[in-house]
C-alpha cells in the first residue's frame, strides 16, 4: 500500500517512473530521499570508481577533510557531494568541465553520517561512492569561529592559494576564501550566510570549473581542484559569490611563471 501510493504519486507528478534505486550498503534511512532530492532522478549505481576519502577519526566536526575523486570514471559531467544525516545534506556540486572530477575540501558534520560522492556521466547515470563517517557531532550548529571576531566583515572574501603542476599534467590548485559560511542553525540566531558559487577561469578567460556550495562547507572554504591549466597560462581567476550578493574576485599566479622550469606542452 505504501509503495503503491508513492509510486502512484510519483507517476502523477513527474509522468515518468524512476527505476528503484539500489539498496544502500550503509543502510541509511535517508538514502531513498537523497536519491530523489539530491540526484533528482536518473539511474543510480554504486560504483567503486568513485572514491570518498575521509579521516578515520574526526578531530574537529567543523573542519572534516573530504576528498571526492571520480577520476577513474571517464566522462563525468557533474560531481555531487552530500551527507545523508546532516541537517543540510547537499554539500557541494562540482561541474568540472575539462578539469578532473576531483575535489578536496572541508565540511561540517552534525553527527556520524554517510558521506557520498555521486558522479554523473553523460548518459545521465549517477555513479555513487559512499563512506560512513564516524563523528561526535555539533559542527553545523556551533557558531562560526568568526562569530567573536567583529572584523569578519573586513576580511570576508580574502583569498589565498597556490598552484602546483601535477604528475597527471593537470594543475593542482588549492585556495582558501575567507568567509564565515554560517549555516543559519547556530543558536545565536545568525542567519545563513555562505558562498553559493565559485567560478574558476584561466587568466586568458577560459572557463575551468564551476562549484556550487552550500551551508555544510566549512568556514573559510579551502578547496583543491585539478585544472586543465595550459603551461602558457600564468594564473587562474577565482570569482566567488555569497548569498548576500557579495562578490569576491582574486587571482592566483602559477609559480612556473616565475621559475625557469620549462614545462613541455602536452
Amino acid at each position: 500500500m505504501r509503495l503503491l501510493a508513492s509510486t502512484f504519486l510519483l507517476l502523477l507528478v513527474s509522468g515518468a517512473a524512476y527505476a528503484a534505486p539500489p539498496s544502500d550498503p550503509l543502510g541509511s534511512p535517508m538514502w531513498a530521499d537523497m536519491v530523489e532530492r539530491v540526484l533528482e532522478g536518473g539511474e543510480v549505481v554504486f560504483d567503486d570508481k568513485v572514491k570518498v576519502v575521509v579521516p578515520s577519526i574526526v578531530e574537529n566536526q567543523a573542519q572534516v577533510p573530504v576528498t571526492a575523486d571520480a577520476r577513474a570514471l571517464p566522462g563525468v559531467t557533474k560531481l555531487v557531494v552530500f551527507a545523508d544525516l546532516n541537517p543540510i545534506q547537499h554539500v557541494l556540486t562540482l561541474t568540472p568541465g575539462k578539469s578532473a572530477p576531483y575535489i578536496g575540501f572541508r565540511m561540517k558534520v552534525e553527527q556520524g553520517t554517510p558521506v557520498r560522492a555521486a558522479a554523473q556521466t553523460a548518459d545521465g547515470v549517477w555513479h555513487v561512492g559512499s563512506v560512513y563517517l564516524d563523528a561526535a557531532g555539533g559542527g553545523c550548529s556551533a557558531p562560526a569561529m568568526a562569530r567573536n571576531e567583529e572584523s569578519w566583515s573586513t576580511t570576508v572574501g580574502q583569498t589565498q592559494g597556490r598552484i602546483w603542476r601535477d604528475i597527471s599534467g593537470l594543475a593542482r590548485a588549492r585556495f582558501r576564501i575567507r568567509h564565515p559560511m554560517d549555516t543559519g542553525l547556530a543558536r545565536d540566531n545568525t542567519p545563513a550566510f555562505y558562498i553559493e558559487s565559485v567560478k574558476v577561469t584561466s587568466s586568458a578567460g577560459a572557463p575551468l570549473a564551476t562549484l556550487q556550495m552550500f551551508e555544510p562547507v566549512s568556514e573559510d572554504p579551502t578547496v583543491t581542484l585539478m585544472l586543465p591549466l595550459a603551461p602558457s597560462d600564468g594564473a587562474i581567476d577565482i570569482e566567488g559569490r555569497d548569498i548576500n550578493g557579495g562578490l569576491f574576485r582574486s587571482q592566483i599566479t602559477a609559480p612556473w611563471r616565475q621559475s625557469n622550469v620549462v614545462v613541455p606542452r602536452g
Binding site: R2, A5, S6, L9, L10, V13, D33, E36
Partner: peptide
C-alpha cells in the same frame, strides 16, 4: 503511513 507517503512524494 501518511508520513512515509509524504516523504516519498513531497519534493516533486
Amino acid at each position: 503511513m501518511t508520513a512515509k507517503w509524504l516523504a516519498s512524494a513531497s519534493a516533486p
